[in-house]
Design a binder for these strands. Structure first.
Lengths: 194, 194
DNA sequence: AGCAGATAGTTAGGCGGCTAACTAAAAAAG
DNA sequence: CTTTTTTAGTTAGCCGCCTAACTATCTGCT
């Protein structure tokens, strides 16, 4: 997320000082929060820069990956129950849900991908409201050429962490993800609650 | 970072399977990468939703915070060397640097804040190219009213983590931040390197 | 059958990122 | 002292995100 605020994260002492003014300020929570956003944004922008060299955005890349997974499934040799390849060709609505964006946004992404010749829209024969989105051969080659560098960057980013540290990180992030989901689920009226 | 791809993160077995096809794919690195982006995005959107209830975006909130810090310093009782309040009133260029956005973006943010009466632009008397951006009293009250809930949300998000876990998380994220900076600094030609 | 409501996709308009091009002013070079 | 270069800020235009409103189609109720 762009503009995640504060290129230089505040020192811990400053958070302690802030806690004197605002009793709600939990310094260690705030520090973790800021580092999480900062690291996420930085990592995001590193991969984004790599993708940009191939003239594609994170969003469109995500759509290609989702469709590519579907393609793989279609051409795979019969392991239709493989949980790694759950679905077949996808509709804009499915893609939007999987990517976590609105359908309006997906329309725009598919527009751009189609203009660039990476994707085709085909009407669904059974339900005339629906469309099927498919990768073109050009897109297959494009993704296959792109992925090695993409994976290499992930490996580079995580290089300083041992396997154990990576597991720890994932488990900590999972806990945070959990509490974030709960905050999202419950009515967001925390203005006065504990 | 909106659209960070994949609402449901892939299972670890699927990453292992992918590693068979792409030798560059480091499963634990990829898992950590995906969790980091996912958690960062989720946490971001939780706070964003809270801010949106007060009709302000993360970006504009960030600008207000930067300016608010300056204000605090100006009104503080003489501790001019306090590292927590490094600078005085700020120019658009300084704000852009501190927030990590371009000056063009900062112009837009300040435009909106000024339109909403939270900020004033004042010409610099010494250098007629420069502007000074200052918070209005309305903005002071606004920020003071907003921060408690904001801090409460951070605390809620990090609630499941112990103090020790938070320290661990911060240190792991710091390592990742470090390697991300190195990747940013070195010419991003990793297509063929190790 | 016929109509109300749900669903798929698009369109319109706003915001916040970006780059690139521009203006005005200050600083540096000659 | 003029000319060139650098710097501060804005503008214009693209992209991806959003919400809200709209069209077309399908589904279900009576």
């Amino acid at each position: 997320m762009p503009l995640l605020l504060l290129k230089d994260l505040p020192r811990y002492e400053c958070l302690l000082e802030g806690a004197k003014v605002f009793p709600e300020l939990d310094p260690s929570a705030c520090e973790a929060y800021l580092h999480l956003l900062r690291a996420g944004d930085e990592v995001f922008s590193v991969t984004e820069r790599n993708l940009a060299e191939h003239t594609i955005s994170q969003g469109r890349f995500g759509v290609l990956m989702l469709l590519w997974n579907s393609t793989q499934r279609r051409t795979s040799t019969g392991d239709t129950d493989n949980p790694c390849r759950p679905a077949g060709p996808r509709t804009p609505a499915e893609l939007a849900d999987a990517a976590g964006v609105t359908r309006a946004t997906m329309t725009g992404l598919i527009d751009t991908l189609e203009r660039d010749g990476l994707v085709r829209r085909e009407p669904d024969p059974d339900d005339r409201r629906m469309m099927s989105v498919r990768l073109t051969p050009k897109a297959d080659a494009f993704v296959a050429a792109l992925l090695p560098a993409h994976f290499r960057i992930m490996a580079r980013l995580m290089a300083p962490l041992s396997e154990a540290e990576r597991k720890t990180l994932v488990s900590l992030l999972t806990k945070i993800l959990q509490s974030a989901s709960e905050l999202t689920a419950t009515a967001p009226v925390l203005s006065a609650s504990s």
